[in-house]
């Protein structure tokens, strides 16, 4: 039986390595300094992807700034204040439902609500908001679990010293839950940063460099999608994919290192 599990583990790792390896092998040759720093020429057949990298950073930042406080706030409410009642069940059910909605539906909603109804027009800001909605359930769910995992004895210790409930939450509970919350935020944003379907109707797909977040733009996954489906350049599509993979790897490794360092300091190991 152990062999079966061992094999499952090995196969999973191999699949992962093959995919990443394939993308890097096909994509890395397209990447050079010009590719990273120049604007695209002829719809991306040549030139670079600098506006796409900036677009991706913009939408991810907007998504993070909107979704992280909202998700963590809801998690604090549910874990610390709400107890068990109908509203709580409704919020949890809402989060689960939100998580299972197909991303293209989010895109359609974003188009009709943010772009048209609220009159934001095609913009990276609207794209960021759609991605925030998508990242929200993950951030909320992981944050709630991390907050609930903080030992009761910490809370009691703080209350017994005369701290109020809120002081206990923000001075003891949240700092202790930060590693888990960070993981949740990164998980949620990693999904958002690699999303094409959710933003394709919303960001306007412009090729030029976005100056502000209220400009239209074209994040990396959308550029990749257009390059591949419109037969513009498979090489540059793979190049874009490789840049995306590397970006996500960097974000994951950097946050993991920071979280580990924080945990070490906190737990004295």
């Amino acid at each position: 039986m152990q062999t079966v599990f061992w094999a499952s583990g090995i196969i999973t790792v191999i699949i992962l390595l093959v995919i990443i390896g394939y993308i890097l092998i096909k994509g890395l040759p397209a990447i050079n300094l010009e590719f990273l720093l120049a604007e695209p020429i002829d719809s991306g057949e040549s030139g670079g992807i600098a506006p796409m990298i900036v677009s991706s950073i913009y939408v991810t930042l907007v998504a993070g700034i909107v979704a992280a406080p909202l998700g963590v706030g809801a998690a604090v409410y549910l874990a610390e204040y709400a107890g068990e009642n109908k509203v709580v069940k409704l919020i949890r059910f809402g989060a689960e439902t939100l998580a299972s909605i197909p991303s293209i539906v989010f895109g359609l909603f974003g188009l009709s609500f943010f772009v048209i109804f609220l009159g934001m027009g095609w913009s990276l800001f609207a794209g960021g908001l759609v991605l925030a909605l998508m990242a929200l359930p993950t951030i909320f769910q992981v944050a709630e679990v991390s907050i609930e995992a903080v030992p009761r004895s910490y809370r009691e210790g703080s209350l017994a010293l005369g701290a109020t409930k809120w002081e206990t939450i923000y001075r003891v509970v949240l700092p202790a839950a930060i590693p888990g919350i960070t993981t949740g935020v990164i998980l949620g944003l990693a999904r958002a940063i690699s999303e094409a379907a959710a933003i394709m109707f919303v960001v306007g797909s412009a090729l030029s460099m976005p100056i502000s977040i209220f400009d239209p733009g074209r994040p990396l996954p959308l550029h990749l999608y257009v390059l591949a489906t419109e037969g513009i350049s498979m090489e540059n599509a793979f190049g874009t994919a490789a840049v995306m993979v590397i970006l996500i790897l960097i974000i994951t490794v950097v946050t993991n290192t920071l979280v580990e360092r924080y945990q070490k300091k906190m737990m004295g190991r």
């Binding site: 910490y154 210790g157 906190m266």
Partner: peptide
Amino acid sequence: VDLRKKVGMVFQKPNPFPK
């Protein structure tokens, strides 16, 4: 809060904060 300032408590299991 004032009461607990006057009446402190030490618990069964040591529970220092992770600080």
